[in-house]
Design a protein around this nucleic acid. Structure first.
Length: 361
DNA sequence: GTATGCTTTCGGC
DNA sequence: TTACGGCCGAAAGCATAC
């Protein structure tokens, strides 16, 4: 039987800032991404748990956060993503050592297959993960939360139960007790929409999924998703921990100074994004075949248009040449003004891939 | 009808 | 009362080929 661990670095961006300046850590810390629109335009990336007690959380406008914290001393810090990336790499290098197979899924989260290390023994698995937590804290003064279970989904759910700075084991035998009473949206993949649809057929908890009429689930969600729900609820979904995590896309995004639908006003932003995206591709040794232009409208709805190039590209000029007609198309069909603009490169090919391709030509 | 591949939208962090 | 980032992966939606 597999034993999987999920490692989640606690309130990561804000914790990095606390480590950098320990004098702030007894106060609310809010890490912000400023848009450049007015002094306080922008959104909250994340906040420490003290700030969360006041209702501050990821995604809310910075102004809202300031209002929630107006009566207390609090720190609002602009995000320093490069710094967090560096912290992440150092910590993940420690985490890696404790895994048979290691998969990083985001800057602050990783899955570990620890079946062999633990000899399929949950008690041993707990000891190993406690040692890992200890090493991370000793070396970086950084806390994380670890969930351990028979599958990725159960490990993830275990993590969510003990945040922050916790550790939780859910053995297969404990799933009925610890997992089935939880609300359906504790299951990764079930958001507000699916939750509502499940509620309509009387399914409120994860355990309810297993008592529901399977054909009814299939009629609502289709066979594939319904099967996932059931397997995941049983702790029997078997998604593997994948060693190599290959990047699939790069994107760059900017908030316009003013909302507009004028091509002449938007053009300089597209040129800038083309330049930045080209630099990102080149510095990571990639070419892209697919280019997509995306606009966030003034009502925050998103429209996008994409196209495959005839050949892999990575120069600013080639990217812009594909992107400009896409932008003109979007402007033509947009029902509203643009607020933000993004440029994405997908269908990536690494330099090595190109070379091996050329050998066949 | 099903498989496949591409485009567009959604949602997590 | 409102206020609103910048990424990413993948699902959903759609077209085409057999």
């Amino acid at each position: 039987m597999s034993i999987i661990a999920c490692v989640d670095l606690d309130y990561f961006y804000a914790q990095c800032e606390e480590i950098l300046n320990s004098s702030i850590k007894d106060k609310p810390v809010v890490v912000c991404i400023y848009s450049g629109r007015g002094k306080e335009g922008g959104a909250v990336a994340t906040a420490n748990y003290i700030a969360r007690k006041y209702g501050v959380k990821s995604g809310i406008p910075i102004k809202t956060a300031k209002n929630l914290l107006k009566d207390v001393e609090a720190y609002f810090i602009p995000a320093n993503l490069d710094l967090y990336e560096k912290f992440s790499q150092e910590v993940m290098n420690i985490v890696k050592k404790y895994a048979d197979v290691f998969e990083q899924v985001s800057v602050d989260e990783a899955y570990l297959d620890i079946t062999k290390q633990s000899n399929s023994d949950y008690k041993k698995a707990l000891e190993i993960m406690l040692r890992m937590k200890e090493e991370i804290f000793q070396k970086h003064k950084l806390t994380c939360t670890v969930g351990i279970g028979p599958s990725k989904v159960i490990a993830k759910i275990a993590t969510d139960l003990k945040k922050p700075n916790g550790i939780e084991v859910i053995t297969p035998e404990e799933i009925p007790l610890k997992v089935w009473p939880l609300s359906v949206d504790s299951l990764p993949g079930i958001g507000p929409r699916s939750k509502k649809r499940l509620e309509n057929i009387g399914v409120k908890t994860i355990g309810d999924i297993l008592n529901a009429d399977f054909m009814k689930l299939v009629s609502i969600f289709g066979k594939k998703i319904s099967t996932y729900f059931v397997r995941a609820a049983q702790g029997k979904e078997t998604e593997q921990v994948k060693e190599t995590y290959e990047v699939k896309q790069f994107s760059r995004m900017v908030t316009l100074k003013n909302n507009t639908l004028q091509f002449n006003e938007i053009k300089p932003y597209l040129e800038q994004l083309s330049k930045e995206l080209s630099e990102t591709l080149k510095s990571n040794n990639y070419f892209a075949k697919g280019i997509s232009v995306m606009a966030v409208l003034d009502d925050l709805n998103i429209i996008s248009k994409s196209k495959l190039a005839d050949k892999p590209i990575n120069s600013e000029k080639d990217i812009y040449k594909i992107a400009e007609p896409l932008l003109l198309d979007l402007i033509k069909k947009s029902p509203r003004m643009f607020r933000r603009l993004a440029l994405r490169a997908y269908d990536l090919i690494s330099y090595e891939g190109i070379e091996s391709l050329e050998r066949f030509v």
